Simulated assay, not measured.
Amino acid sequence: MKLKTTLEQWLTLIEVDRAGSIQGAAQSLNKSHTTLIYALRKLEQQLGMELIRIEQRRSVLTDEARALLRRAIPMVAQARTLEMVSNQMAQGVESEITLTVDHLCCRQWLMGPLARFSRQYRGTSVQIRETSLSATERAVTEGEGDLAIINLPVGNHLTDPFGVVTMVPVVAPNHPLSRLESVTISDLIAHTQVVVRDLGASKTEGERDVGWLRSELRITVDNFDHAWDAVRAGIGFCRMPEHRLAEVDSSQVVRLALDGGGAYQVPLHLTLPKGEQTGVAARALYQLLLEDAQSRMGRPDGAPI
Rank of each mutant, 00 (worst) to 15 (best):
K2F: 00
K2G: 08
K2A: 02
K4Y: 12
E8W: 06
W10G: 05
W10H: 05
L13M: 04
L13W: 05
I14A: 14
V16E: 13
D17G: 07
D17R: 14
R18T: 15
Q23E: 02
A25K: 15
Q27T: 14
S28H: 11
H33R: 15
T34W: 13
R41L: 10
E44N: 03
E44P: 07
Q46T: 00
Q46G: 04
M49G: 04
M49N: 02
I54P: 00
S59P: 00
D63T: 13
L68K: 11
R71K: 10
I73M: 13
P74V: 14
V76I: 15
A77D: 12
Q78M: 15
Q78K: 11
T81G: 07
M89S: 08
Q91Y: 01
G92S: 07
V93C: 09
V93D: 10
E94F: 03
T100S: 14
V101L: 07
D102A: 04
Q108R: 11
S118T: 01
R119G: 11
G123D: 08
S125P: 12
V126I: 14
I128Y: 04
R129P: 00
T131H: 10
T131R: 12
T131P: 01
S134M: 08
E137W: 12
E137M: 07
A139R: 09
G145L: 03
L152W: 06
G155L: 03
G155E: 12
D160I: 13
V164Y: 07
V168R: 00
V168C: 05
P169W: 01
A172V: 06
H175S: 06
L177K: 02
L177D: 08
L177Y: 11
S178C: 10
S182G: 03
V183R: 07
T184F: 11
I189R: 15
I189C: 09
A190G: 02
A190N: 10
V194T: 04
V196Q: 12
S202T: 15
K203L: 10
V210G: 01
G211A: 02
E216K: 15
L217M: 02
L217A: 06
I219G: 03
N223C: 14
F224M: 08
D225Q: 11
A230N: 09
A230P: 02
R232L: 08
G234W: 06
G236T: 09
C238F: 00
H243Q: 03
R244M: 13
R255W: 05
A257T: 11
G262T: 15
A263I: 00
P267A: 03
P273I: 02
G275E: 12
E276C: 01
Q277W: 08
A282T: 12
L285F: 00
D292S: 09
A293N: 00
A293K: 02
A293I: 08
R299H: 14
P300S: 09
G302N: 09
G302C: 07
G302A: 07
